[in-house]
Nucleic acid binder design. Structure first.
Lengths: 172, 172
DNA sequence: AATAGTAAACTAATACTATTAGTTTTACAA
DNA sequence: TTGTAAAACTAATAGTATTAGTTTACTATT
């Protein structure tokens, strides 16, 4: 009954907390409402629907991913941190995928673009290279995710090798 | 009321049809039951739950993927067919991911392993290379999927370049 | 052929999911 | 102080998977 001044930011904060501590699948209207001690319909006074909440979550999750990556400047260090983020915060990583490539998305792409092996390429080739590298990273993460993180032991070695092959393919 | 001799195979066939013609998300107990003109609870006489149905779907979908790939013997032709399959039958491709790496999964891996650029590598390196290549393919597909197949025009070119980079990184 | 047993369907109910309509309450501003 | 608007609510709908318990239909045996 009290008005508790609910805001969009409080809602997305709650939603991100759930994604981070439980899972992305646990981000439901009921769970968000419970975390805020309100009833689900109240959320519709601030967001059109669950999808809009997830859209907003994606933007913030992308910013957190950017923050984690921003001081890295080689393909390997970016790749390692990228994978590390997706393992440490799977819910946040999943959330980050549900948003298009906005401002933050471009900023992340720029981190890859400014890497030694990529910086020298002509624009067109650079775009394809970045697309390929990100595909590789995301695919690596997603396949691990689907297979339940089985062979964790070789995970880092596989990543290092993959990045090595890609770098050699670019510079050679 | 008639008994209509429902079998596991008829159920998975119906489920795969739904995945193929509608979407993987449309694979629900209600939809499967409707396709078979029965009520949802009847499905539980043949499968423990929806997850087991999806498990079985995964095996069959992997077989269909293998069939589509089996006559290809270069990384590029495999990659093109792989992406083609995922675009032509997104529901089937999604289904194929929900199963671990069983017999068919290994058969698919062998197709990559027998490729000219990979066949010569020592076993350990080969494993990492295959893992990397499949990650790249899957990531490429999944990112397109999440971004809604925006830039379809450059899709093929990006793929060709990616494969080129990877091949050069291996042989160089 | 009658009957027992089993397999496979059913109905009804539970507990979730998102969402909408309509109502009440709270807070703030005139 | 009172009116208005924002923000909460309750109640309901339609969808999801699943379970319990019941009935139907077929099959095999006596």
């Amino acid at each position: 009954m009290p008005k508790m001044q609910l805001t969009q930011s409080k809602i997305t904060d709650a939603a991100l907390s759930i994604a981070e501590q439980q899972s992305y699948e646990a981000v439901t209207m009921a769970n968000i409402a419970r975390a805020l001690s309100i009833k689900p319909p109240s959320l519709y006074n601030h967001f059109k629907n669950l999808d809009e909440i997830k859209q907003e979550m994606a933007l913030i999750a992308q910013q957190k991913l950017y923050e984690a990556l921003k001081d890295k400047n080689t393909l390997l260090s970016l790749a390692k941190k990228y994978v590390d983020f997706s393992i440490s915060y799977p819910g946040l990583y999943t959330a980050s995928l549900r948003g298009g490539t906005g401002k933050t998305g471009h900023a992340i792409v720029q981190l890859f673009a400014n890497t030694p092996v990529l910086a020298g390429l002509v624009e067109k080739e650079k775009i394809h290279a970045i697309r390929g590298f990100r595909s590789m990273l995301h695919g690596f993460i997603d396949l691990q995710y689907h297979e339940g993180f089985k062979m964790n032991v070789n995970l880092e070695e596989s990543l290092v090798r993959m990045v090595g092959i890609f770098e050699r393919g670019l510079s050679g």
